[in-house]
Design a protein around this nucleic acid. Structure first.
Lengths: 240, 240
DNA sequence: CGCTATATTGATACAGTTCAAGTTCCGTGG
DNA sequence: CCACGGAACTTGAACTGTATCAATATAGCG
């Protein structure tokens, strides 16, 4: 991971990810002041790790740009992706400084990140009540998302899992201003998607063929194009 | 749900669940004061619902006594249990008052609950910084637990799922002072366990037979007895 | 003491996995 | 710009874990 020297760091003022980030709750006026508590800005190249499950790291990050995956690994090597991190996502925060982190984060594309040390975070939480509430809101949402993933991973079958997963992602991309009607950049590999929804990449392949033959969604080679979002959405949370 | 009249309500002072609950962070001295912001105490009979996914309820609860299940339901009726609530667990909290709750809660055994209205909560969070940090810690832990469930539900197979699930529960019961070496009360049905780990009750039955034949764990008829915890633990997070 | 819930057992079907052999894609260097 | 090599995807055949359905057995409740 490459640290960006202070004079080259970009300001929170014109950060596009801010409306999805922890600092969403900070008013323009206060931003310069709060920004002083940001402890660094980094470049993380694709496929590099930010941290690994078990690390005793002491930093939380806002993903400023790029795609990253958060995952856990079982003893037998099986990988479960627990979250696809997009611009604005707050990752690596732990309330207990002494406990090791319970998941790993790896960049999918080249990423930019802003860091907050534990001290700077508790300083920020001390001086700005809005940041506390925003942090709580972020956690509530993460929880909600995780419960939803758990539900479809546990209860639905392959085709529906794909739909659930894609619809979730598409909605998040939409909010970030991506035009989902055209073909969009989609850096996740088959293996990534498979590990996120709990099936085999091979079987995901077969399901994908079916989805593209039915003119629902085409998802391959770093690009995604939605042909029939209504049907896809309906497939997420129903047997159709 | 039956409301307990004020004069019959028990105090937080000698609550056994408190050390696992939100008020864990409150000192004995402050407890009487904080307790004033508790808005009610309730009895919820077995199989009754506390609230249902989609409800616009405005109350958070501490489970004081009993077992409850938190679950989500897919359109096709499939149920995923996302959490087994035990004494001390904080359930139903939402950071956004306007949003409907994203899961349902049903009592498994008769339960006792303490309630906090949205107003009382924001009052408490305003006056007691420790309660803020405790709330954040609770959410962090819930998140962690959910990620873990997602991982084994998504990636391991039936036998291991059972082990994961039981080990998690057993550890939580231990902390609550239950002697796990003897036979313990275990009110969850086969269907409940199956819906928590994402398999069929019938198949869970077969796996259970195997586990009991191998003298690892016997789990039936409202009781659980662990024969070989070492092996069970090893089965959680490994192929053995 | 019967009645409904819940759990067991067996037979069969299928979704999803595994392994292995192709194929296509894409970045790299000549 | 093309040729190469490795990674990512596809395809096929065989296998297996889990689901389904249906029929019994057992447990707990009124």
């Amino acid at each position: 991971m490459k640290k960006i020297p202070p004079r080259k760091q970009s300001s929170c003022l014109n950060c596009e990810a801010r409306e999805f980030a922890w600092f969403e709750s900070v008013s323009k006026g206060q931003l310069v002041e709060r920004e002083k508590n940001r402890t660094g800005q980094y470049l993380l190249a694709a496929n590099e790790h930010l941290f690994i499950e078990g690390d005793e790291h002491h930093t939380a990050y806002t993903l400023k740009k790029g795609w990253a995956i958060c995952y856990k690994q079982l003893k037998d090597g099986q990988r479960q992706i627990v979250h696809i991190a997009l611009a604005g996502d707050f990752i690596g925060y732990k309330s207990e400084p002494d406990e090791p982190i319970d998941y790993s984060v790896m960049a999918v594309t080249d990423c930019e990140l802003c860091s907050f040390s534990e001290e700077s975070m508790s300083e920020l939480l001390k001086v700005d009540i809005n940041l506390i509430h925003r942090l709580i809101a972020i956690q509530t949402k993460q929880n909600k998302t995780c419960r939803k993933s758990l539900s479809y991973v546990g209860q639905s079958q392959a085709k529906n899992k794909v739909a659930f997963f894609l619809v979730d992602l598409i909605e998040r991309l939409k909010r970030r201003g991506v035009d989902v009607n055209s073909t969009v950049d989609f850096p996740l590999s088959r293996v990534d998607i498979a590990d996120a929804i709990g099936i085999t990449p091979v079987h995901l392949g077969r399901v994908s063929v079916e989805l593209s033959q039915n003119e629902i969604v085409e998802c391959r080679h770093n690009s995604l194009s939605v042909k029939n979002y209504a049907v896809l959405k309906n497939m997420a949370d129903s047997d159709l």
